[in-house]
């Protein structure tokens, strides 16, 4: 090692550093812009998520809440095993993971199919040329979307009340027209445990929450479909009708393919939103009767809020996350696969 070499180094370093500093200045400022978001998210989003995974392997319970209490015991996969086998059902009556997941999927798909079909058909009705009152209808039909779903849910809950609810009252007045006694329409929507349609294991409360959520969900699809319909060139229909295509043929061969690129992402958004539709289930049927209309997010909340099994709730939430991950990957694949339809 010679002195001169050292000297050289010390002379060159600042300029190297300067060059590096200048070269990376844009990157540095980019990371500076990212810093606030990722700093906050690290603290209140990512850390709690990792903590949740850790909690899911412990028996964290109400006894561990106090600041001076002992840390929870590590129990390995016990929470997960309890969820899949009967272990959790011993603490939460009528809990069955597979039935819950199946019901959640039935709930999701039955809703979204009706939302999309009703949404598109109503959008087509509204798109008719020279329709009277178009603007008024469009304004009214957006109302279910603009009212908070929390309010809609509690209102429907009271409407389904067996004695004073307006649903039974309306049914009774319709029934009265054909001479049916009002007594027949004291329907106990939320408590009846028998299945109204033989062979289909879905309670009356399922149909009640389905009705409420259809009321809530179709306007979004109508708005998306209306936007897509307006971008279809009218001469396509003119050419088709000159060639003798019936309106039904026009609908399936022009309208459907043309609005598909807009409807598929909207339907995928609807799937995820409906899968996690907490408000309608929690406030209207409360998962009842006998947990037959419980979905995954309402169950996760009850495990914290009512059973206070925090470790178990964490394990359950990890499973919710995995199911959603699967669902999202499938929906993203479907969205991507249909993207090329644009052309």
């Amino acid at each position: 090692m010679t002195v001169s070499l050292n000297k050289n180094e010390t002379l060159e370093r600042p300029s190297d550093f300067q060059a590096w500093w200048n070269r990376t200045s844009k990157n540095r400022i980019i990371y500076m812009y990212l810093f606030p978001s990722f700093f906050v998210m690290s603290l209140i989003t990512f850390y709690p998520l990792l903590y949740e995974v850790w909690m899911s392997f412990t028996d964290y319970g109400i006894q561990n809440l106090r600041a001076d209490s002992a840390p929870p015991n590590f129990v390995g996969m016990k929470n997960y095993l309890d969820i899949f086998s009967g272990g959790l059902a011993a603490k939460v009556p009528n809990f069955n993971f597979l039935a819950l997941l199946t019901f959640n999927l039935v709930w999701t798909f039955s809703n979204v199919i009706v939302h999309v079909v009703a949404g598109v058909l109503i959008a087509v009705l509204l798109d008719a040329d020279g329709l009277w009152g178009k603007g008024i209808y469009r304004t009214i039909f957006v109302l279910p979307m603009v009212i908070p779903s929390l309010v809609i849910a509690v209102v429907w809950r009271n409407m389904f009340d067996p004695t004073a609810g307006s649903i039974n009252a309306a049914l009774a007045s319709i029934g009265g027209l054909v001479g049916l006694p009002a007594k027949m329409f004291e329907i106990r929507w939320m408590e009846q445990t028998s299945y109204p349609i033989p062979g289909i294991p879905l309670t009356l409360s399922f149909f009640a929450v389905l009705i409420a959520n259809i009321w809530l969900g179709w306007p979004f699809m109508t708005i998306v479909a209306t936007g897509a319909l307006q971008s279809i060139p009218k001469d396509l229909y003119e050419a088709a009708s000159m060639d003798g295509a019936t309106p039904v043929q026009q609908f399936f061969n022009i309208t459907v393919p043309m609005i598909r690129p807009a409807m598929v992402p909207a339907a995928m958004y609807g799937l995820i939103a409906t899968f996690n539709q907490f408000n309608v289930i929690y406030f209207i049927s409360q998962g009842g009767p006998l947990r037959k209309t419980e979905i995954m997010v309402t169950t996760a909340f009850r495990l914290v809020n009512e059973q206070r099994l925090y470790g178990m709730a964490a394990a359950f939430s990890v499973l919710v996350f995995l199911v959603l991950l699967g669902l999202t990957l499938v929906t993203n694949r479907i969205t991507k696969a249909t993207e090329s339809y644009d052309a």
Binding site: M41, I44, T45, F46, P48, L49, Y51, E52, M55, Y60, N64, L65, I272, N276, F278, V297, A300, F301, L303, V304, N305, Y310, A313, A314, S317, V320, F321, L324, L325, T328
Partner: peptide, 15 residues
């Protein structure tokens, strides 16, 4: 994170 419903993180946030 967006995919997760906020209710799925109630347990760790509460604790």
């Amino acid at each position: 994170v967006l995919m997760l419903p906020s209710i799925a993180t109630v347990a760790p946030l509460f604790v």
